[in-house]
Each structure stands twice: as structure tokens, then as C-alpha cells.
Amino acid sequence: MVLIKTKKEIPSSEITPEAVYLSRRKFIGQSSAVVAAGALAQSSLALPESWIEDQGYEPGEDIDEDITPEKHATNYNNFFEFGTDKKDPAKHAHQMTVDPWSVEIKGLVEKPGKLPLEDVIKDIDLEERIYRLRCVEAWSMVIPWIGFPVKSVLDKVKPLSGAKYVKFTTLLRESEMPGTKARFSSIEYPYVEGLRLDEANHSLAIFAIGMYGKVLPNQNGAPFRLVVPWKYGFKSIKSIVQIELTRRQPKTTWNLSAPQEYGFYANVNPEVDHPRWSQATERRLPQGIFARSIETKMFNGYDEVASLYEGLNLKRNF
């Protein structure tokens, strides 16, 4: 499948443009969603090869800008619950039990409750989205996710009129997460992230259950994570166990730990430096030692989200 971005300032078809993915064939119909749920039940396994072929998934075809090799996307991770070294998540995340997995939906919703993940994704079509992932640490990757819009879940649980924000919480299970027992820690667990409700409802915001045509590896946030491609990576919270609709802006982990460094919005913005480094450029991984960095784009190149922030001072609300 050819994915072509028509706007010329966006250099490649690495991104799935909204217009195209909305019209393109869905990868899984209702019956195949059961396949996905079945695969999740044994989530250490890949989705069946035949499934990928049936859906016509041909990774990397006609893509100008390279998809990050899978081995890097799965071995260079920030998931501090498993340690702060980039290799720690790949080393330790296998300890995390991801089956069974349930997600508690609470707060200002019509249908609160604790649901098995299978039920959360029931009747939802899966799609592949190839997104840039820009880390706040000034590196980036291009990753083919498998997932579905956040909106499709929110529509099912029906937020009440007073709901303004969505708060997401990561699993906290100390016995399976060596990083949470670290001494001298300055961040608190469980990890919490949040979005404004209209951000969460934007069609680019997805929940992912897979990547590279397979079920998510644990270090990448199995079995169920958020992907918000126009924000720094730390907003795309992993291994979600709770979704709460709130009236007030939730207190998010990095923002609490260092408010001058990590804002609530955390939109990718080349004009707002991190206090310790410039955000004007990024290293597209893997990057050779002497390779040049590339320029970072506003909203990570996803201009279609700009209307969400009209009238908002993005320098102050970084």
C-alpha cells in the first residue's frame, strides 16, 4: 500500500495521512478483531503471519523515509518502571504479566467499569498507522503501530458533559517492575499522563496494541498503550490500566517531577527549548556517530492538530 503525503513540506510518506487512512481499507473487520483479542490472550506471541498477509500488510513498501528497524524500536526504550537505562526495558519487561489485563474506566463517564482488554477493543477495527515518534530527549523514530483511535473507546464509554480531560494510568506492580523500587527516585509511580478531551478525540490520537505487524512487546507498553504523535514521547503512556475522565487537568508524572522541564501539553515544538538542550533538531535513530541531525517540525509535522491550540500561547503552555 502506498502512503503518499501530498503537502510538499512534509518530506515523506512515512506518516499515514489522515485523509488516506480514513479512506483506506481497515486492516481488521469485526470478525478479525476476535483474532486480535485471541492473539492478545497469548500476547508473547506474534499476531499470526497469515493475519498480516490476509490484511495486505507489507511493511516498508514505498516509504521514502525509513521505518526504524524493529530491533532498535524494541531495544532502545524509556520505560522507567523497568530501569533508567535504554536497554533496561528490553531486559526486564518480560517480567510484567500482561495477560489477563483489564482496564478500569472511571470518572465522568456514562459507562464506568473494569473491563477485560478483550472487551475494550471488541468490535473496534484495527488499523496500521506509521507515525514519527519524537522523544523529548531529541531523538526520534518512525514506527508502524497497530491500533485504533482513542475516540472509538471514548465513544463507547460516553464521557459526561462535565468531562474536560482524560487521565491515563500505567500499571504499577513492584514485584514485576524493578525500576519502581529504585532508591533516590524523584518520580512517583504509578506513571500518569493526560490529554485534554478534544486532544484525545483527535483522529491522530490512537491506542496501540501492536507494532511491526505483531502484538506490542512488553517494553513498548504491552498490551495497550497510547500514541499521540504530535507530542513528545513521554505523553504516549504505556501499559494502561486506568482511564479516567476528569473535570480538572490531571497531575501528570513528569510535570510533577520537573514542571519547568516538562509541561502538560508537551507538544513537539522546535521553538521551545528544553532547559538543558535545544529542541530545534533531532537525531533520527539509528543515527551514525557523525551523521547530521534533522530539523524538528512544529507538532512533529502533524499540522492538522494546530486548530486544537488556536489562541493558546504554546511558549507558555509548553
Binding site: T68, P69, H72, N75, Y76, K86, K87, E137, W139, R283, L285, P286, Q287, G288, I289
Partner: peptide, 15 residues
């Protein structure tokens, strides 16, 4: 790394 990028220092060797 110069011959086989990522082999020893991972995808972000500069850091």
C-alpha cells in the same frame, strides 16, 4: 560502529 552502525553503541551512539 563506523562499519556496522548500531552494532556496539546502539541506535544513538552520540549520546
Amino acid at each position: 560502529e563506523l562499519f556496522d552502525p548500531g552494532a556496539r553503541l546502539g541506535p544513538n551512539p552520540g549520546d
